[in-house]
C-alpha cells in the first residue's frame, strides 16, 4: 500500500532531516512510528501524501508515485486520510460542514449524500449530537474524533496519524485511541506516529523506530518490545516505559 524507498530530505547540505528511509506498509497493516522528537517521524509521514517534498528516493501509494510531477496530487491525497496533532478542523464551519466540505468539493458528492455520510461517521465516533456546533465549542478529544471522522468521510484507502494524541489532555487521550483501535481492528491500513506504546502493543503489526532522520529499527511488534536490536531503541524504550 505504501512503499517508501531510499528517501532523502535535506534543507541544506548540512541539514539532513531524512536519511535513506526505506520501509513499507502493506494493506491492512498498522505500523507505529516512534522515536525522539526531531527524529524525522512527522516529516516522513508528511512525505507520504506529499505535504513535504523530498530530494531523492521514491514513495508509492497504492502504486502511484507521489514524487512524480505528473501525479494528480489532490486526487491522491483525497484517498489518503490524515489526522494532525492539532486537529486542524476548520473553525468557521460547523462540525457537520467540516465533514462535508471535501466530500462535496473534492469527491463531487451531493450535499444530501455527504451529510448522510457525515452524520453516520459522527455517530460512529460518538459525536452525533455535536453536528451543529462549531469546533471551538468542543473539547480537544472531541475535536480530534471529528478530525478522524472528517478523514474517514473521504473513504480513504490508508490513514496517516501524526501524533494524534500529543496535544490532548491526558484524560482525553483514551477516547481518541479507542476510535483508532476500532479502526485498526476493522482492517484499516494505518501509519501512526505516536508515543502511545500501549496503543502500539494493542494493535500495531510493526513498529518503526527513528532517530536523527534514520530508520533505526523496523520490526514486528513483539520483536520490538521484546528484544530491540539497537541500543538507541532500547534506551528510548527504557525511558518511555519506565513510568
Amino acid at each position: 500500500m505504501i512503499e517508501i524507498s531510499h528517501v532523502n530530505k535535506w534543507y541544506s547540505p548540512t541539514f539532513q532531516v531524512l536519511t535513506d528511509c526505506t520501509t513499507n506498509v502493506t494493506k491492512g497493516e498498522v505500523v507505529v512510528v516512534c522515536g525522539p522528537s526531531g527524529s524525522g517521524k512527522s516529516t516522513l509521514i508528511k512525505c507520504v501524501n506529499a505535504l513535504e517534498p523530498f530530494q531523492s528516493g521514491d514513495i508509492l501509494v497504492d502504486g502511484t508515485k507521489v514524487n512524480d510531477p505528473k501525479t494528480d496530487l489532490p486526487k491522491l491525497r483525497s484517498r489518503v486520510g490524515m489526522v494532525f496533532q492539532h486537529f486542524e478542523l476548520f473553525p468557521h464551519l460547523k462540525i457537520i460542514d467540516n465533514l462535508c466540505l471535501a466530500q462535496e468539493k473534492v469527491l463531487g458528492r451531493g450535499h444530501d449524500k455527504a451529510q448522510a455520510k457525515g452524520m453516520q461517521l459522527l455517530e460512529r465516533v460518538g459525536l452525533k449530537e455535536q453536528a451543529q456546533k462549531f469546533p471551538a465549542q468542543l473539547s480537544g478529544g472531541q475535536q480530534q474524533r471529528v478530525a478522524i471522522a472528517r478523514a474517514l468521510a473521504m473513504d480513504p484507502i490508508v490513514m496517516l496519524f501524526d501524533e494524534p494524541t500529543s496535544a490532548l489532555d491526558p484524560e482525553m487521550v483514551s477516547e481518541v485511541l479507542d476510535v483508532m483501535v476500532d479502526l485498526a481492528r476493522e482492517g484499516m491500513t494505518m501509519m501512526v506516529v505516536t508515543h502511545e506504546m500501549g496503543f502500539a502493543r494493542k494493535v500495531a503489526n510493526r513498529v518503526i523506530f527513528m532517530d536523527r532522520g534514520e530508520i533505526v529499527e523496523d520490526a514486528a511488534k513483539d520483536d520490538f518490545f521484546g528484544k530491540p536490536r539497537s541500543d538507541r531503541a532500547q534506551k528510548f524504550l527504557s525511558k518511555i516505559l519506565s513510568h
Binding site: L51, Q85, E88, F90
Partner: peptide
C-alpha cells in the same frame, strides 16, 4: 496546519484559499 489540512483532504490551492 490549516493549509496542510485543506491540502491533505485533496482540496486544490484555489479551493483551499476559497473555503
Amino acid at each position: 496546519g490549516q493549509k496542510m489540512a485543506a491540502t491533505a483532504l485533496g482540496l486544490t490551492t484555489v479551493q483551499g484559499y476559497r473555503y
